[in-house]
């Protein structure tokens, strides 16, 4: 009982919250790019919030549900259709056996998440099911999904779903995303930027280059200059660290970042803005907004509180729905 990949997309992989505790050995944490979308995908089904999910880009996989399942699709809107009927994102969906899910159009966002009730059977390595492409471990044999892969469900009961059904509630996601506005806090070398570059960083837009991936987003725009050349010995970096490359352009380190780096750290994207950034497609532009560390903390805490409320509401609705059935 599971789902089968009829046709793989360009990069479909199993991810969870990441593999922490091993960065001292140079092992990157990895994990989902958009933590909010992945959390909500699980929340909608009453799963543990860090249950592994399927992360897909466009074009995404065509998927056959060999058995019936309750699922949720979150993140990007790729025009999802089940058996030719448009289905809604951010809403629990009951899917009958033998149904086919496809993603028809790249409408909005760049990463879609698919969760199933109680999760997938995945291979865990060092405490995480996130796919490490570098080490070929975790998820589905440490690689992207390929044709005919079968992802077994943890829930092996027959759910006896006769027809495609949306459950009558949905998660409101607008509050978690901002329209390509990316809040960041100053990094250790921010003060060494020339004043004109500090100003330029927040007054100009920067384009996400096509040379962007799960390791990092390269940005294109105004050249940023340091007052003096500096030579940093390598130190730890994190998801969201904004480094200034020797060509005067920025790179934002994303989920699969290396553990250490030596380029000047001019900023760090606020955790609360990482989901927005994760959903920006190559070719789109972003606008940076400077905030303080305290603000970054408070916005993130508020965001997590909203997620907690959503989780409570979803659990309540699910209980009510299945009690009345």
């Amino acid at each position: 009982m599971g789902l089968r990949i009829l046709k793989p997309g360009i990069a479909d992989s199993i991810q969870d919250k990441g593999r922490y505790g091993y960065q001292q050995l140079g092992i990157p944490p990895g994990g989902v790019m958009d933590r909010i979308a992945a959390t909500v995908a699980n929340t909608l089904l009453g799963n543990k919030i860090d249950e592994p999910v399927l992360e897909m880009h466009f074009p995404a996989a065509t998927i056959l549900f060999e058995s019936s399942m309750m699922i949720a699709i979150t993140g990007a809107d790729f025009g999802a259709e089940i058996n030719g009927h448009a289905v809604l994102i951010n809403q629990p969906i009951l899917v009958p056996a033998k149904a086919e899910l496809r993603f028809t159009k790249n409408k909005k966002g760049s990463k879609v998440y698919l969760s199933v009730e109680e999760g997938f059977q995945t291979s865990s390595w060092l405490g995480s099911s996130s796919t490490s492409f570098l080490l070929h471990k975790g998820g589905q044999e440490g690689r992207n999904l390929i044709k005919n892969d079968l992802l077994e469900f943890n829930n092996q009961e027959d759910l006896e779903i006769d027809s495609l059904t949306h459950l009558p509630w949905r998660a409101s996601m607008a509050e978690f995303y901002s329209d390509n506005i990316i809040a960041f806090m100053p990094g250790a070398e921010y003060q060494m930027l020339e004043k004109i570059s500090q100003t330029g960083m927040v007054t100009n837009k920067f384009k996400v280059s096509t040379q962007s991936n799960r390791m990092g987003y390269r940005l294109e725009g105004q050249a940023l200059l340091l007052g003096n050349k500096i030579d940093c010995l390598s130190s730890a970096v994190s998801f969201g660290t904004i480094q200034l490359l020797p060509n005067a352009q920025m790179i934002v380190l994303m989920a699969d970042h290396q553990t250490t780096g030596g380029y000047p750290r001019i900023g760090h994207v606020a955790s609360s803005s990482l989901p927005t950034l994760a959903q920006v497609s190559a070719g789109e532009s972003i606008q940076f907004e400077l905030i303080s560390r305290d603000e970054a903390e408070n916005i993130y805490l508020q965001q997590q509180q909203n997620l907690q409320q959503l989780q409570n509401a979803c659990n309540f609705r699910l209980q009510e729905y299945f009690r009345n059935e």
């Binding site: 001292q24 010995l233 390598s234 130190s235 730890a236 553990t259 993130y300 805490l301």
Partner: peptide, 21 residues
Amino acid sequence: ILDIIPAYHSISIIYDLIKIK
């Protein structure tokens, strides 16, 4: 505490903001 990462002349801690708070 998610990670403690030593480097040449620095050490970094990656933490879970919610749990530390």
